[in-house]
Design a protein around this nucleic acid. Sequence first.
RNA 1: CGGGGUGUAGCGCAGUCUGGCAGCGCACUUGCUUUGGGAGCAAGGGGUCGUGAGUUCAAAUCUCACCGCCCCGACCA
Length: 476
Amino acid sequence: MENRITPKEENFSQWYIDLVLKAKLADYAPVKGCMVIRPNGYLLWENIQKNLDRMFKESGHLNAYFPLLIPESFIQKETEHMEGFSPECAVVTYGGGKKLKEPLVIRPTSETMIWSMYRRWITSYRDLPLLINQWCNIVRWELRPRLFLRTSEFLWQEGHTAHETYEEAEKEALKILGIYRKFVEEYMAIPVYEGRKSESERFAGALQTYTIEALMQDGRALQAGTSHNLGQNFARAFNVKFTTRDGGEDYVWATSWGVSTRLIGALIMTHADNKGIVIPPKLASLPVVIIPIYYSSEERSRVLSYTQSLYSNLKENFNVKIDDREEYRPSYKFNEWELQGIPLRIEVGPKDVEKKEVILVRRDTGEKISVSFNEVSLQVPTLLNEIQKNLFEKAKKFKEERTFKVDNFEDFQKVVEDKGGFIYAHWCGSPECEAKIKSLTKATIRCIPFRNEKEEGKCIYCGEESSQRVLFARAY
RNA sequence: CGGGGUGUAGCGCAGUCUGGCAGCGCACUUGCUUUGGGAGCAAGGGGUCGUGAGUUCAAAUCUCACCGCCCCGACCA
């Protein structure tokens, strides 16, 4: 197999696909539009899952599991929801060798199944809030799939909550978005813009959709997570009422929210370079790898015993591996671990043993640092922290440098075409202008940012009054 | 569904125009030498040339039909 990776500048999306395949994160499945996540890629997902799960539980959410198959009539109960999802649903029509009386939809999301259960579980305000999450796979029949970013089947996490009041649901939706932002920025080292979606970009059946939007290295935006305030739409459709504190009756207020294996795609497209993947230390299953280097068999035993004591020093606090495979040369191993994105490499050769030193090599900068044996266990955590921080800062700088304030449509088109990135521009608020801009430039409103300064201006397209700027970009 | 490609060893490809022994690189196996940035040499294994039909003494190559995959669009809470 050809081991080298082509430079990413030439064709970013081809480079991305090649990298995913070469780093053995995923592979094309024998079913069109579907992807196999290989152990390497699954490790990343496990780490994402582990950390998010902890954060959900800390804020009172519990995991449950709901069925894969949903009666077709459930989807049709909520009109907007049906319009949003019907075209991309896969449907089972046969079972037990017979045509089914009612077709079963493979879940594209579980709102309908979950709300049909919530009807049984919720009768009083004492049953609220109900805070449930599930980790599962879903199917959306996409016409044009891309590994990790959009596949017909994918793994995700979907939270579904029920509340007494609009305010409480709104607070929950925003709280979850905050968790997503914190996780994506602090663990994945991916800086994002937070905001709400325009009406046309909203989730089918939601009052509000909140989103975090990241910027990939080719200048295209990626929606990294969404959180929806569903109002009472699903409660009405599934007739979920509860007795209020004052003895009255009301429909339940709902939220739903999710992130998927798409985050792995975001991680790669944000940090990877021409040597391969770069994994932020906080998400790395294996943050440190030790590579022994030797020539003679006499050196071999000296170097290996040195790496053993190094290993014992570090293994208390870090997952460390000694790559002592005899069949590969050190230079081969360097490249291989760089392709896998391991944050820190420790090289140990005869010269280092002699001087009681080691060489630490950072994945993010390639910098080689000589450190005395005694300092290694102090230097490793320091460097890992620095790498984590540096990855975030580098990506943040990139995102900020590619966020352009633009005040007329001609410049808007030019920036979209030539530079890419986010465009911060005035918009009158009409869906017609939004649609026109999309069809002319392929740029969509990614979000109306929180903490947006009020500013009078003219809509970039129609020139009508506008009270704030919104973020546009071409997106994946 | 429209436009453009492509299908030959596990992967990447040449060979097709002009029909005549099934090739190359990487990977794999064995041996020796190597080992501080993807090692060298030698030997070796691996093929329904996408499928079906046709033309021909002879088809990866020419003709017809079908199928798959990739890229660009349309779709994508």
